[in-house]
Simulated scan of single mutants.
Amino acid sequence: MSATTMGVKLDEQTRTRLKSVSEKLDRTSHWFMKKAILQLIEKVEAGACIEDVVGPDTLEKDSLRHSITLRRHMNSGS
């Protein structure tokens, strides 16, 4: 199995939190991020919808920033 490196931009506060929780588990930040990504993939594959992942209170703001459908719609000029 080949692997590809992918970057994730994190602000300083998130990086600090990531380092802290990783150290609490005696694991690397890389391990923690990979584990979190795999768990979220499994959750969605099992049927979770966006509301289950993001939460209804922040869904609108998250969608405006990250929705692929909204980006396509905005870029098409429709």
Rank of each mutant, 00 (worst) to 15 (best):
D57T: 11
V53L: 03
V53T: 02
S63T: 10
A46L: 04
S78F: 04
K61V: 15
S76P: 01
K34G: 02
V21R: 05
H30W: 14
G55T: 03
M74A: 15
G55E: 05
A46R: 05
E60G: 08
G55F: 04
T16I: 14
R72P: 00
A46V: 01
K24P: 00
K24T: 08
K61A: 14
E60N: 06
K9N: 12
V21P: 01
L38V: 02
S22L: 01
L40A: 15
I37W: 15
Q13T: 04
T69P: 13
R65T: 14
Q39C: 04
H73K: 06
D26F: 04
M1N: 05
I50R: 03
V54R: 02
S63L: 12
R15H: 09
K9H: 14
K19Y: 10
L40R: 14
H30A: 08
T16W: 00
S63I: 10
K19I: 13
T58V: 14
S2I: 06
E51P: 01
S22Y: 07
Q39M: 05
V8K: 03
E42K: 02
T16N: 11
H30V: 05
W31L: 08
G47N: 07
I41C: 13
G7L: 03
K61D: 12
M1V: 06
F32P: 00
H73E: 06
H30C: 03
T58P: 02
V21S: 07
